[in-house]
């Protein structure tokens, strides 16, 4: 089959971008969307042009690296599927596919279809964990977790952090991502001691990153490759409200988002003083 890929090309964050159309012949219906891009890139390199930059790694739908909009839908038309597992048979022969990067202020563009999602890491760093250091754990069976609770935690923990929820949300909100982590840890007995603190800290960082607010629309869960339910956002709201009400500690310290790459992240208290 044959398709035309209309791809957003932009050399760097500062520059301006535009769509460029590339016809791709000999597309095999069994190819994945990314393999189709591989084929195009091989042709571009042979012609001496810069290949299309796109993020990918595991190509089995679990690492969360890949993702872009195909004809206005994050990860394309097939539900619960990332672009690396989306085969070309789901498109029509001769179709034009518009490929556009995730667009959000908190996901600054790096090049072509590649965006910077470190805002997600910073949300996790603000409180998306259980504060336990290596070595102090009790026996695994000392903490009983009802099967239903474990299943609920797992449903939320399945998030791959790809960013499709933000990309699809008309508000560019990260509520589904943040809610998934808050739910995963919040329903488990191990996570209860930090439940209030976690929700307050993570919401503060999420807001500091410049994501939009959730207005319960539901586009996020529709495009989510792991079908994380909207329920996790309610759980985040509940933990946040309850935490705001009863927490005694008053310290919330979100950090300023950064977009520089030159030296990576720096320490809050650098021992060398630099």
């Amino acid at each position: 089959m044959r398709v035309t890929l209309k791809i957003w090309r932009q050399a760097s964050r500062g520059g301006s971008g535009k769509f460029v159309s590339y016809p791709v012949d000999n597309v095999n219906p069994d190819m994945s969307m990314l393999e189709c891009l591989d084929v195009l890139n091989e042709q571009l390199i042979e012609r001496g042009e810069e290949p299309v930059a796109f993020e990918h790694d595991c190509r089995e739908g679990i690492c969360g690296s890949c993702g872009f909009m195909i004809n206005g839908v994050a990860h394309g038309p097939l539900p619960a599927t990332t672009v690396c597992q989306l085969t070309m048979r789901h498109f029509k022969d001769g179709e034009t596919l518009t490929l556009e990067p995730w667009r959000a202020r908190a996901f600054p563009l790096i090049k072509d279809l590649v965006v910077d999602r470190r805002s997600f890491d910073r949300i996790i760093a603000s409180g998306g964990y259980i504060s336990t250091s290596t070595g102090g754990a009790c026996d695994g069976n000392d903490i009983l977790v009802p099967k239903e609770t474990a299943d609920r935690a797992m449903d939320a923990a399945a998030c791959i952090g790809c960013g499709a929820c933000v990309a699809a949300c008309p508000n560019a909100s990260a509520a589904l991502f943040t809610g998934a982590k808050i739910t995963h840890l919040g329903v488990l007995p191990q996570g209860k001691p930090e439940q209030d603190r976690r929700a307050i800290a993570m919401v503060a960082q999420m807001n500091a990153e410049g994501f939009g607010g959730c207005t319960n629309i539901g586009e996020c869960t529709g495009v989510c490759p792991k079908e994380i339910p909207l329920e996790v956002i309610a759980a985040m709201n509940r933990d946040y409200l309850r935490g705001s009400w009863r927490a005694r500690d008053n310290v919330v310290t979100p950090i300023r988002p950064f977009t520089e790459w030159s030296t990576g992240s720096k320490l809050k208290n650098d021992p060398t003083g630099g």
């Binding site: 503060a204 500091a208 008053n250 310290v251 919330v252 310290t253 979100p254 950090i255 300023r256 950064f258 520089e260 030159s262 030296t263 990576g264 992240s265 720096k266 320490l267 809050k268």
Partner: peptide, 10 residues
């Protein structure tokens, strides 16, 4: 690029 703490609302 130092990590700066922002928006502490007391």
């Amino acid at each position: 690029m130092a990590t700066t703490v922002i928006g502490t609302r007391e």
